[in-house]
Design a protein around this nucleic acid. Structure first.
Length: 620
RNA sequence: GCCGCCUUAGCUCAGUGGUAGAGCAGUUGUUUCGUAAACAACAGGUCCAGGGUUCGAGUCCCUGAGGCGGCUCCA
C-alpha cells in the first residue's frame, strides 16, 4: 500500500508516452469523447492527427479490408489502430510511408461533412467499419442517458478517404510536415484485455525537417544513455533468464549501490530514524489483515510449508507495526521513525518487465513514521527538507505533487481535512512550488509524490510521502497513550526517498549517461603508470587512496598509457592519474579528468585531500 | 498475460538450405611507451532450448524460455 514508487514510475517511462494523460480515471478511459476527440488542441496536434488520417488512407490502400480503430495525435506524433488480415512487417511500414508521401504530394483538401446520426451510422456500416459504428452507438447511448439530442455525425474526407472524426484538421494533406513511421505495436481495442488486439502504428511528424531530425537525434541519445546498455558497458549489473526481473549486481554496481545506501543511512541517522529489518517470508494472514490478499494475491510470490501459506513480502509496512506494537508507546515516544531497506518481491506479469525500472525484486529505502496528529505539519516539512537534501547530491530539483482525498477514500472525512490542511501548511511554509492534484491521493492517505526531470527532460516518479490515516493505524490497531492516559490512534507516514534503489540507479545512469558525480562514482580514480618502473609508486598511491576509503583502481597492465586512458574514459572514471618519471620524482600526479582537462604536478597529498573532500561534500 | 519483432564467441554484429565468420575483449610473446586503441600469434561456439521438415537446418515449420517495442496491469 505505502508504495507506488515503482508502479507510478513505470508510467513515466517510454519514449513516446502514448498516454500523456495518465491520470484519466479508468472509467473515463476509452470514453466516447476521448475516442472522437483526437486531441487536436493546437496546430501541431491538428497536423499530427491529419497525418494519422493520411496513414489510415495508405494502410487502406494496401489492405482494403482494414478495419479502423482510432487515430489520435499524441506527444511527438500520432498513431492509428487497425484490424488487419495479417501482422505488419517493417517492409509494410516503408510501403505505407510511400503511400503517405503520395497523398501528401497530391495536396488533397480535408473536407468536413455533417450527417444526421442515422445516415452516418448507416454509412460506416456499409463500408464495414464496425469499430466506428460502435463509437457512434456509444455516443447514441450516452445521449440517451443524458437526455440530450443526438449530435450529427461529422466526417473528414481527403481524396477518396473518409473517417469519422470531430476534427480539426489542417487545410490539406500538403500541410503535413516531415514524418516517419516508427514502430508497430499491439493494442487492445479501447484498452480492454477482453476486446480484440489491434495493430497500432506509431509515427512522428513535425513542422520542419530540423525538428524531425532533432527528435530522432533525441531518441538516439536516449538509446545511447539507456541504463540497460550502459549497465553492461560499465559492468554495473546484468539480468539472466534464471531470475527474470531481478538484477544481478556486479562489484561496480554494488559499490554504487552501497554508496547511495550509506549516504541515505547517514541522513536517516542524523534525522532521528531507527533502522529495522523485518522478515521477507510472511504468513498470508498478515496480508489478509492488511487487505492486500484479496486484491493482490495474484501479484505475490506465494509458497507453502507444512500446510501453511506464506508469501515473499511485496511491501514492508504491515510488518513495521509489529515493532511499533512490541511495547506500549507513550505520546513522548513519538514521532517514532522506523526505517528499513526492505527487499520486496512483486510478481509482475512477464510482459511488463523492463530493465531496472520494472522489476520483480527491488529494495526500497522505506520508512514508517508513527506520530501524533499535532506533529504532522512539522514532520512533513522535515521530510520535504530531506528530499531536497538528498536530491541535491545529484543536482536534481524535486517537484512535489500533492494528491488529496479521492472519492473512494476510507476513513473519517474530518480527519482527512485536518491532515490535508496540515500538509498544505507544510508545503506552503517549505516555500517551494508544488502541484495540486485534487482527488489523486491513495484511498487511505493523502500523499505527496515527488518527480524529477532528467537530463533529457523526461519525468520520473521516485519518492513518495503518504500520510496514512487508516491502514496501519486502524487495521493493525496501533495506539499510543496520550497525556490523559488514554489510548489513541497515531498517524503513520510512509515515505521513500530514493524509492526503489534499482529504479533510482536506473534513472541516475540515464541522467548522467553513466558519468556519475565524483562522490558516488563506482571508480573515482584510476592510477595510470606509464611504464613498468612506475608501477610501484602507482600502487603506493592507490593504497593511500584506498586507505582513505576512496574508490581507486591501478591500471598496471602492460598496455600503453593511451590505451589505459581510453579504457578509463569509456568507463567514465572521473580522474585519471598519470604517473611517469617526472611524477615519481616529485611524488606528484598528472591529473586528467573525464572532460579531458589536465592539471599537472599535483602532489599526492593534495589530490587525496581534494578527492576526500569532494566525496564528503557529495557535490553533484 | 496479450500482439509483433529479436536471440550466432565475454561484448558489438556479419552469415543464399551445403565445412561457423569479423572487430573488440581474453591468453601468450615481443614492446616500456607522456594524455582516447603498440605489434604478432593462439585460443574461443549446445548458432537460446526442445521437437519437426529435408539427403542435409544457424537458415524453413511448431512449442517453450528470455529480451525488445507497445497494450493491459502496477499496493
Amino acid at each position: 500500500m505505502a508504495n507506488e514508487v515503482q508502479s507510478e514510475a513505470a508510467k513515466a517511462v517510454g519514449p513516446a508516452s502514448a498516454e500523456p494523460e495518465e491520470f484519466f480515471d479508468t472509467v473515463e478511459r476509452g470514453s466516447v469523447e476521448e475516442l472522437l476527440d483526437a486531441g487536436a488542441h493546437s496546430d501541431i496536434d491538428a497536423m499530427r492527427h491529419s497525418a494519422a488520417h493520411v496513414m489510415a488512407e495508405s494502410v487502406q490502400g494496401i489492405f482494403p479490408d482494414a478495419q479502423l480503430g482510432i487515430g489520435p495525435s499524441i506527444e511527438d506524433g500520432f498513431y492509428y489502430d487497425f484490424l488487419l488480415p495479417r501482422p505488419l512487417t517493417p517492409d509494410d511500414l516503408a510501403a505505407i510511408e510511400d503511400g503517405m508521401r503520395t497523398s501528401i504530394a497530391a495536396d488533397h483538401a480535408f473536407v468536413r461533412k455533417e450527417f444526421p446520426f442515422a445516415e452516418g451510422r448507416a454509412y460506416f456500416e456499409s463500408v464495414n467499419q464496425p469499430f466506428k459504428v460502435e463509437i457512434l452507438d456509444d455516443l447514441a447511448a450516452r445521449a440517451k442517458e443524458t437526455g440530450e439530442p443526438l449530435p450529427p455525425t461529422s466526417t473528414y474526407s481527403h481524396g477518396a478517404f473518409t473517417d469519422l472524426c470531430k476534427g480539426p484538421h489542417v487545410a490539406s494533406t500538403g500541410k503535413i510536415g516531415p514524418f516517419k513511421l516508427m514502430t508497430v505495436a499491439g493494442a487492445y481495442w479501447r484498452g480492454s484485455e477482453k476486446r480484440p488486439m489491434l495493430q497500432r502504428i506509431y509515427g512522428t511528424v513535425w513542422s520542419t525537417q530540423a525538428e524531425l531530425d532533432a527528435y530522432l537525434l533525441r531518441r538516439e541519445e536516449a538509446k545511447r544513455r539507456d541504463h540497460r546498455r550502459l549497465g553492461v558497458q560499465l559492468d554495473l549489473f546484468s539480468f539472466h533468464d534464471v531470475s527474470p526481473g531481478s538484477a544481478f549486481w556486479h562489484p561496480k554496481g554494488q559499490r554504487l549501490w552501497r554508496t547511495l545506501e550509506t549516504a541515505i543511512r547517514e541522513v536517516q541517522d542524523r534525522r532521528g530514524y531507527q533502522e529495522v529489518s523485518t522478515p521477507m517470508l510472511v504468513h498470508k494472514k498478515l496480508w489478509e489483515q492488511s487487505g492486500h490478499w484479496a486484491n493482490y494475491k495474484d501479484s505475490m510470490f506465494v509458497l507453502e510449508s507444512e500446510g501453511q501459506t506464506f508469501s515473499l513480502k511485496p511491501m514492508n509496512c504491515p510488518e513495521s507495526t509489529f515493532i511499533y506494537k512490541s511495547k506500549l508507546r507513550s505520546y513522548r515516544d513519538l514521532p517514532l521513525r522506523l526505517s528499513e531497506f526492505g527487499r520486496l518481491h512483486r510478481n509482475e506479469r512477464s510482459g511488463t518487465l523492463s530493465g531496472l525500472t520494472r522489476v520483480r525484486h527491488f529494495v526500497q529505502d522505506d520508512a514508517h513514521i508513527y506520530l501524533r496528529p499535532d506533529q504532522l505539519q512539522e514532520e512533513i516539512r522535515a521530510l520535504l527538507g530531506e528530499v531536497y537534501e538528498v536530491y541535491g547530491w545529484f543536482g536534481l530539483e524535486p517537484r512535489f505533487t500533492f494528491g488529496t482525498r479521492p472519492d473512494k477514500a476510507l476513513g473519517d472525512p474530518a480527519l482527512w481535512e485536518t491532515a490535508e490542511a496540515q500538509i498544505t501548511a507544510a508545503l506552503e511554509s517549505f516555500g517551494k512550488p508544488y502541484r495540486l492534484k485534487p482527488k489523486d491521493g491513495a484511498f487511505y492517505a493523502p500523499k505527496i509524490d515527488i518527480q524529477i526531470e532528467d537530463a533529457l527532460g523526461r519525468e520520473w516518479q521516485t519518492a513518495t510521502i503518504q500520510v496514512d490515516l487508516v491502514m496501519l493505524p486502524e487495521r493493525f490497531d496501533c495506539t499510543y497513550i496520550d497525556e490523559n492516559g488514554q489510548a489513541v490512534r497515531p498517524m503513520t507516514i510512509h515515505r521513500a526517498i530514493y524509492g526503489s534503489l534499482e529504479r533510482f540507479i536506473g534513472v541516475l545512469v540515464e541522467h548522467f549517461a553513466g558519468a556519475f558525480p565524483v562522490w558516488c562514482a563506482p571508480v573515482q580514480a584510476v592510477v595510470i603508470p606509464i611504464a613498468d618502473r612506475h608501477g610501484g609508486p602507482a600502487r603506493e598511491l592507490g593504497a593511500l587512496l584506498s586507505a582513505r576509503k576512496l574508490r581507486v583502481e591501478v591500471d598496471d597492465s602492460d598496455s600503453r598509457m593511451q590505451n589505459k586512458i581510453r579504457l578509463a574514459q569509456e568507463q567514465k572514471v572521473p580522474y585519471m592519474l598519470v604517473m611517469g618519471d617526472r611524477e615519481v620524482e616529485a611524488r606528484t600526479v598528472s591529473i586528467r579528468n573525464r572532460a579531458g582537462e589536465q592539471e599537472n604536478g599535483v602532489t599526492w597529498d593534495a589530490f587525496i585531500d581534494r578527492l576526500a573532500e569532494e566525496t564528503g561534500a557529495r557535490k553533484p
